[in-house]
């Protein structure tokens, strides 16, 4: 075999790659390691212990913030995914027309608008709404999270719809299925992995949001990330490391699941 160009064979490739991985993952590795520290320092290793995991588990504020985070993420992800599914169907199951690209851009805009701008805008809007309605519950956070999660949920669903064979839907309608039946019995079952992937992505994105939550939340509405941010301003103990480690594990699990779900379209084609 003649040698083709391969980046892998360039001098120094391995070294540079290892260095990059090292830089990327060293801080995270340190964080994980020190979450098992038995001492109360995040820099001096004093022995292995699970005491900080236990301490976090017994910390009422941590539990409350976690539950709140999960509640917001769950509801916001479902809302975002529902909107994204409808948007994806509307933008893929139509003949291309003038303005379709603009629609794509509008749907994906939250990815490009600086988060701080969205945060400030929502803060101003919601403060007005609060005055008018007097409502100050978790609804604001849920709506805010749903809003910025839509493009994340939209992407995998749209990808799935675009890779779907259009003649399947045509075949269904040829076989006496109304447009609703076609959606119910053909499009939706085939789209399901995409919807789940979108849901999980939205869930993870909502779970670790800090900026928008920090601006929109009312008193006593800390989510886990904003609670941690607040704690870090005072005293830093390996308890933060322990919470972060748990967070990391959950995120990794969800992302892994996302990976496997979004792989299915290729399997279908085999």
């Amino acid at each position: 075999m003649a040698k083709t160009f391969s980046i892998k064979r360039q001098p120094g490739f391995a070294t540079i790659a290892m260095f990059c991985f090292f830089l990327l993952y060293l801080p995270i590795a340190t964080l994980v390691v020190y979450s098992f520290n038995s001492g109360s320092s995040i820099a001096i290793w004093e022995g292995f212990s699970l005491r900080w995991f236990q301490s976090a588990w017994n910390n009422q504020q941590v539990i409350e913030a976690s539950v709140r985070s999960l509640q917001i993420a769950a509801v916001a992800a479902v809302i975002a995914t529902a909107c994204a599914t409808l948007a994806a169907i509307a933008t893929t199951r139509t003949a291309p027309y003038r303005g379709l690209t603009i629609k794509y851009s509008i749907i994906n805009m939250p990815l490009l608008v600086p988060e701080i701008v969205t945060a400030v805008a929502l803060l101003i809007l919601f403060s007005r709404v609060k005055v008018w309605t007097g409502y100050s519950g978790l609804g604001y956070l849920i709506v805010a999270h749903a809003a910025f999660c839509i493009p994340f949920a939209y992407m995998p669903i749209r990808a799935r719809l675009e890779s779907m064979d259009l003649s399947l839907e045509r075949a269904a309608s040829d076989l006496y299925a109304s447009s609703f039946q076609t959606f119910r019995y053909v499009t939706l079952p085939l789209l399901w992995p995409g919807i789940l992937a979108g849901l999980m992505l939205a869930f993870v994105i909502s779970l670790d949001d800090v900026v928008i939550t920090e601006f929109v939340k009312s008193g006593g509405q800390d989510t886990l990330p904003t609670y941690m941010l607040g704690q870090l301003r005072r005293v830093v103990t390996p308890e933060m490391n322990a919470i972060s480690t748990v967070f990391l594990v959950i995120s990794l699990a969800i992302v892994t699941l996302f990976f496997f779900l979004s792989r299915t379209p290729q399997k279908d084609n085999e």
């Binding site: 399947l168 299925a177 019995y185 079952p189």
Partner: peptide, 25 residues
């Protein structure tokens, strides 16, 4: 009814479910 060039069978259904699709609808 149409037999499509690429068959357009429903990949998430069994052989019997594919054949019965029209009658079910």
């Amino acid at each position: 009814n149409t037999v499509f060039q690429n068959y357009a069978l429903f990949p998430h259904l069994t052989v019997a479910e594919n054949i019965g699709f029209g009658l079910k609808m």
